[in-house]
Design a binder for these strands. Structure first.
Lengths: 226, 226
DNA sequence: CTGTCAGAATGATCGACATCAAGAATCGAA
DNA sequence: TTCGATTCTTGATGTCGATCATTCTGACAG
């Protein structure tokens, strides 16, 4: 399955950059390319987990599914991000589901391949530990956000965060507004109203999935008052 | 600092049970016993992290502190549990604070000691990865609980969970009701009212920190309706 | 015993966000 | 272009849990 480019691709994933060439070659060799169309599930809650994923292109959402079908988006995966490692180590079924929200290509790395690599290279283990720690920190921030911040604060926080990582003064929403709303733990209606309010009071301009933020300071101030 | 018993104690912590005797001995030797009185802080948000902790006896709460002082309890640490590992791997300041809610004794394991042990023993690394993954799963369940469940459901869930791990039909609250309320993301008032309601409708009996649950099925049913 | 103080319970009120219900806009396929 | 289906917006109404305020309880020091 793997093309020569798999090797090069993995080399640029933070998790694997420190690996020796041979190790990388073996990982690349055993990795499986999987294509998913928009809307297809990669796995569902309860499925057994046999490895980890790295997203090459496209977009994947990770969500929890409650009884009576309500779903809550936990994370939106962008290219080069990995996911599913934690479940692999636990050797338990997935507690979440993953679905492609665009046509996507992922690399699937079988558990035993990765475990072998871990035994050989303590640096990889260290990176993996750091990676999971990072994930933990992110999730902790989410808990903080959900429990301590209001709807407006959550949206403002998201926008400022996106601005920061993109550099410019425009945010391009990575998914449709429903999905993003769920990620921010809002209903689509509330999300819409918050954007409306920020347009009036903080001068942002919403055009479809593109949001321009002429004055990020003004936006930032919305967090504190009201 | 370490007494001979430190070695024996560490041996029974899941994380370290698989370690070789010599390794364990070195960890025990370098571990530092620290005593904290009720109310004392182990560390605050922003403090540098130089190692991980294992609680020997007492009780410790981990909490996030928002601006204007509001605090939200993330976790209540029981004896034999470890905490602070994730931050150690990230080499960033603590994103949370830790405070003794009872007189407590902890073992502090310096980062370099642990890193050395990790390099030597890939099984320890694997256990550590599993440990962090477990933590991640727990936190994910919390997110699920906070975002998808009502106040009554959260309290019922907590009680049933406690019953399950203790075996009997009595739950002894590990901390005062304010703190537990915060852990469940409730105000003390709401928590009190929910317990009141469960007394009337599910037959539980609340006496201080002791809660008797004569019929756990009846309690369980409260989750679904209303 | 008495005063004090933290913890807990109870009552009254309020507000943020969800829900329900239509419309409006956007997109994609024929 | 046109039609249909999503996706998004907007409005009216409802509700869960927070907040504010008071009372009650029990533990403990003096």
């Amino acid at each position: 399955m793997p093309t020569p480019s798999t090797h090069a691709f993995l080399k640029h994933i933070p998790l694997f950059t420190a690996c020796h060439e041979e190790e990388l070659a073996r990982l690349a060799e055993r990795a499986v390319e999987q294509r998913y169309e928009k809307g297809q599930m990669l796995f569902q809650r309860g499925d057994p987990c046999q490895g980890m994923y790295v997203l090459v292109y496209g977009r994947v959402k990770i969500a929890i599914v409650a009884r009576q079908g309500a779903e809550k988006v936990i994370e939106i995966i962008h290219p080069s991000q990995s996911f599913g490692e934690a479940v692999m180590f636990l050797e338990q079924p997935y507690p979440v589901m993953a679905q492609a929200v665009e046509d996507s290509l992922v690399l699937f790395i079988p558990a035993d391949t990765l475990f072998a690599a871990l035994d050989e290279d303590s640096r990889l283990a260290r990176r993996m530990l750091a990676g999971l720690s990072m994930r933990l920190r992110t999730l902790l921030r989410d808990v903080e956000t959900y429990t301590l911040e209001s709807a407006v604060e959550r949206v403002v926080g998201y926008l400022l965060n996106s601005l920061e990582s993109s550099g410019g003064n425009v945010v391009n929403l990575p998914v449709n507004k429903q999905t993003l709303a769920s990620r921010l733990n809002l209903t689509p209606e509330t999300f819409s109203r918050v954007l409306q309010k920020l347009s009036e009071q903080a001068g942002i301009v919403v055009e479809g999935r593109e949001i321009r933020v002429p004055d990020s300071n003004k936006l930032s101030e919305m967090r504190n008052l009201a």
